[in-house]
Design a protein around this nucleic acid. Sequence first.
DNA 1: AGCAAATGCGCAAACGTTTTTCTTGCCGGA
DNA 2: TCCGGCAAGAAAAACGTTTGCGCATTTGCT
Lengths: 340, 340
Amino acid sequence: MAESGRATTRTRATLTDVAALADVSVGTASRALSGSGRMRPETRQRVLDAAQTLGFRPNQQAQSLHTGRSWTVGLMTTDGIGRFSTPVLLGAEDALGAGKISVLLCDTRGDLIREQHHLRNLMDRRVDGIIVTGRRTDPRPPLTGVHDDVPVVYALSPSTDPADISVVSDDHQGCGLAIDHLISTGRTRIAHVTGPAHHAAASDRARFTQEFLAEAGLELVLGKPHFGDWSEAWGRRSAQAVLRAAPDTDAFFCGNDQIARGVTDTLRESGIAVPDDIAVVGYDNWDTMALAARPPLTTIDVDLSEIGRIAALRLLDAIDDKPFPGVHSVPCRLVVRDSA
Amino acid sequence: MAESGRATTRTRATLTDVAALADVSVGTASRALSGSGRMRPETRQRVLDAAQTLGFRPNQQAQSLHTGRSWTVGLMTTDGIGRFSTPVLLGAEDALGAGKISVLLCDTRGDLIREQHHLRNLMDRRVDGIIVTGRRTDPRPPLTGVHDDVPVVYALSPSTDPADISVVSDDHQGCGLAIDHLISTGRTRIAHVTGPAHHAAASDRARFTQEFLAEAGLELVLGKPHFGDWSEAWGRRSAQAVLRAAPDTDAFFCGNDQIARGVTDTLRESGIAVPDDIAVVGYDNWDTMALAARPPLTTIDVDLSEIGRIAALRLLDAIDDKPFPGVHSVPCRLVVRDSA
DNA sequence: AGCAAATGCGCAAACGTTTTTCTTGCCGGA
DNA sequence: TCCGGCAAGAAAAACGTTTGCGCATTTGCT
């Protein structure tokens, strides 16, 4: 690489160098730097100075080899690093990086072979723990081949094994926020448009929505949720269909922001005022969608980075031999903008 | 973690264990497994069998400590892990993971303190190299404090130091694709709407666009590019302004897909047919935008994951002591959909 | 003054590999 | 018979730390 100017040292100083310069043994140097052990303040200072002048930084690999801790966790994301895993990942990285733990990124692209490959790699590197995250909220089978003493936390997609540690979004509470908001602003004829029924994120939210409505003595417009896909196009189409079949609808609660945006587009183009005539609530609080919609969407923020953060904290607990098994739910927040 | 069923071994087998089981010395065991050194085939087989039955996997930390290579590279992303860095990151991870190299993820959130913190961490971990990526295409100052023998590759945002290794998108060629396409489909009154003038991505593309038009004996509608921000709202507003001032405009070339989408929305709502009356070309090929627009956008694909891949390959070269300094441009692709 | 206790620090083992050097036994050739 | 050469594998050094143990030297107490 051999650029001239900006470099620091040509060969890195080792503890032996420091010890030599301070005229003590390596053991003493080590203790001086770690602050442990008893020694004359003057000696300690001499070591500190030596380390300073040599720009000494301990070799993590050597430390890890000795202590058995790598100060590293694996972050497996099962589908690319999409819109959902990214904030989770960042939340985790943030919480872990605050300590001296680094994150090894592994993307399996949903491929089991790749997952195994990465997993072996992580084991070989003696990671202290693993966080697994996926795009879907559907439960996933637990990782296989993880060594006993390496804890695993599942984020976003819980493990199918309830004895594992999982951190998920509280869809139930999220739907409650949305429905409460709509009802408290006087809406009673509420439609629910969402993604494919075979996605947990769609079917769960639909079920919760109906439960909350039932508690208020209401039921969905047309009696049932509208399953489709997560796209704007589906939002546009379903809005048309609902308007035709139930013109007195006064609110749409949508399974995600893209659908919600599609719905608002159809409404606007049909000359229906949002939220005056019909209110629209989205889900996810995906900025680019929610803010660009006309009007900007009132929506449920899933707080993905908080999920990542909690997952990291639970992992740290488990690494520290104080695991909290089970499913941990992270509450959502209602973000009120102009659409409801 | 103490689940019962799925585990493998309670304590991991070490090379010493393998050697003991095979009744050879550790040195011999090591050579048997690495395939180097001469020995009786029978002995080698005995070691292989022992390793197999014990499920032996070499401890990477120990290997690294000895060989001085960590088989690890740092991936520093300077602003969250946004829409731009993510594909770059994945491309890099893919190219590196193909070997046995793992990726350490560091997010600086644009904070210099954090950058230094992460950098020290990476140095302490003896990474073999570093890839730096940012959201903007503006050049960035080189990393400071990197040890001499650790190569760095800058992806997406080039380093201001031309002696560094940078991999960027070929904006010049990309603009050429767009303008060629528009001209070859008979457009001559082309407007350019883009982001803030102080973003290289905006000013560069604007300049290149004008150059290509000039080559064809044309110039921009209203004589100059329209700088604003990267939002749909700006796309909508500027489209209105352009239509008012230059009603004979027959094409919009936009600095990104969000602006392009805003433009198409305004056109559609003004009763102007896209692309029959006016063509629209975006930039970035951001699926969620380009596909959801009406009509779906013809746009320039920046091939971010290829940038990541190339960056990884250049880094491997440099790690291998065969660096190719300078700026490497990755060509864009024209994706033709329905808007032009 | 004399002895126990405390202090300061060096020595060496250990972590799990790889690699170099050294030992042993065997064979063939003079 | 003796020795050179060679093959197979053992032993040991090395990578850079941390840490238990023990040896001096100092301190404190009678």
